[in-house]
């Protein structure tokens, strides 16, 4: 009698636990998609803001077509990668765009009238704020992806994950170039 009730209790507890594990896996998988959607919203917002910034720059920068072209091309690259849903491509395209924007801001230093322009200041602040928010949400996305990846590989979740469709999530890297060593010789040779 006692043994029977204990076995029943343990069986119900184990069943509830396994259901909880499955639901937990569903939740972390959905969290990855949600984190990506939240990041994607900001990528779209920045996509919409960049032409305005480039237009304002064009009014003052007569001879910087290449710089502006690079930004617009990188913007198109991010949009294409985003639409394809390929996380790795987004990371590469995002690096290009960030490099292009850094170049644009550096060149803008040579144009005092542009820097003093209200429209430029406002758009630069807006794009910078979006960049910061995108960087923050990338962290959140990577956290969610990491939780998902650990869950589907760790015991006992891995057992439940093997019977369902729980693919690993790719991490999103923007700053790979920053990891390369700084060439101090080149820096001081300037």
């Amino acid at each position: 009698m006692i043994a029977g009730l204990i076995v029943l209790f343990l069986a119900v507890a184990l069943s509830g636990y396994l259901i909880g594990v499955y639901n937990g896996l569903v939740r972390v998988s959905a969290a990855v998609k949600l984190a990506w959607s939240n990041l994607d919203v900001l990528l779209v917002q920045r996509h919409d803001e960049l032409p305005k910034l480039v237009e304002v720059c064009k009014q003052y920068m007569r001879y910087e077509g290449e710089t502006l072209e690079r930004v617009m091309k990188a913007r198109g690259g991010v949009d294409a990668a985003r639409n394809s849903g390929n996380i790795s491509s987004v990371g590469v395209a995002e690096r290009e765009l960030r490099a292009g924007l850094s170049g644009l801001y550096a060149v803008a230093e040579r144009y005092p009238n542009l820097k003093a322009s209200d429209a430029f200041q406002q758009l630069q602040a807006r794009v910078s704020a979006l960049e910061t928010a995108i960087a923050d949400r990338r962290e959140v996305y990577n956290d969610a992806a990491n939780v998902n990846n650990v869950r589907i590989r760790a015991f006992p979740d891995a057992l439940v994950a093997s019977v369902g469709d729980f693919p690993p999530a790719l991490l999103l890297h923007f700053q790979a170039d920053d990891k390369s060593g700084v060439d101090m010789h080149a820096l001081f040779a300037r």
């Binding site: 636990y17 909880g20 639901n23 937990g24 939740r27 972390v28 969290a31 949600l34 984190a35 939240n38 919203v41 910061t132 928010a133 923050d136 949400r137 959140v140 956290d143 969610a144 939780v147 869950r151």
Partner: peptide
């Protein structure tokens, strides 16, 4: 409690300035 344990562990910490 198990569900809450997983929820606490699986919910990523976010910053206020960029929280969705």
């Amino acid at each position: 409690s198990l569900r809450r344990d997983r929820l606490v562990a699986d919910t990523p910490r976010v910053r206020v300035r960029s929280a969705a």
